[in-house]
Design a protein around this nucleic acid. Sequence first.
DNA 1: TGTACATCAGTGAACGCGCGTTCACTGATGTAC
DNA 2: TGTACATCAGTGAACGCGCGTTCACTGATGTAC
Lengths: 192, 192
Amino acid sequence: MRYTDDHKQATRQRIIEAAGRRFKQDGIDGSGIAAVMKEAGLTNGAFYAHFASKDDLVANVIADQLRTQIADLDAVPPGRAGIEAYVRAYLSPEHRDRPEVGCPSAALLDEIGRCGANAKAAYSDGTLAFVGEVAARLAPEDPQSILEQVTSAFALMIGTLQLSRAVTDPALSNQILERGARNALDLMLPES
Amino acid sequence: MRYTDDHKQATRQRIIEAAGRRFKQDGIDGSGIAAVMKEAGLTNGAFYAHFASKDDLVANVIADQLRTQIADLDAVPPGRAGIEAYVRAYLSPEHRDRPEVGCPSAALLDEIGRCGANAKAAYSDGTLAFVGEVAARLAPEDPQSILEQVTSAFALMIGTLQLSRAVTDPALSNQILERGARNALDLMLPES
DNA sequence: TGTACATCAGTGAACGCGCGTTCACTGATGTAC
DNA sequence: TGTACATCAGTGAACGCGCGTTCACTGATGTAC
């Protein structure tokens, strides 16, 4: 082996993360291979040493994005208070204004719906794991009982963030976020 | 005038509607001018006699899509029963499986968030008018009182439909739709 | 320890193609006489 | 009523450009002796 064992893996991961940022900022269709590679500090030719095609990259980026989103839950304090803070941060003006470092679902969900089978499978698996993890934090003894409601609340959060990004009146945008947070929490934590 | 007064207007409208279908099916970035014009039964050269640019078309398509969505409310019976049927039709497998003739928000909202000011303004105005009309049907005496909640329920409906389109397991997809419909109705019609 | 070598991650130019846009032209139309 | 004409919606080829992808090459690396 000419290079250290994980040198190539590290480069690959760097490309995946750069692509994640670009995709979330400009859309999947709106981001070219050359731009992604430049953001990763490489030239376009190196791309095909790491991925079979752009579709292959897309599926890997989606899987990685959801893995990160799940890993970020580790920083959330256990119980309801933690989830409440998480929802408020998700539906905050800061998250709205920085899609490139935000939730992949809010930035890309309709485009993912038009992607190929691999990308959709990666999204499906990742999202199921994510809502499962949230449910486990809210009801450790029986996560299954609230899984559907957590999933539905997540759909509300995604739609709310997208709507807040598309609307031109800043006051209305903030109001949409606030109402969305209240409703998402009501769906997930009914007796609160 | 060589042609009838509204001949050119009719062609323009045909292009806008063809573009609406294509955009919702393949995305805005994923739909070329040539493909749109072909769907309208024309050749690409005629495009610039009707629109200044693709951006100009996009803004007009978004405005037209929301106008249609509002006009479609006329077919909805007044009162809660009508809205209930509307929500169930919106979150139905039929709507999920035919994005090209469905809701523009569900098909395109994250892409609209990345569009220019004109497109976002068209979306913003149209959506405000749409939720206003829904609120007027639910609370004719005081639509303002439920406007925020109707908007939030619409966000839930959009996110739910997008999620149902991205998920690969059909049973899960249907379950997401059903739960989303129940929750959307709970948000809009609290005492039902 | 020092040198020649094999490896292979990354370079950068090139491929055909479809994009958004432009433009010289066509030919069906309603009007003028 | 019939013919010549001006209008202009629509045609289709072409523009430069960036796309996804390919490939001959480079040069830094760890290994062998």
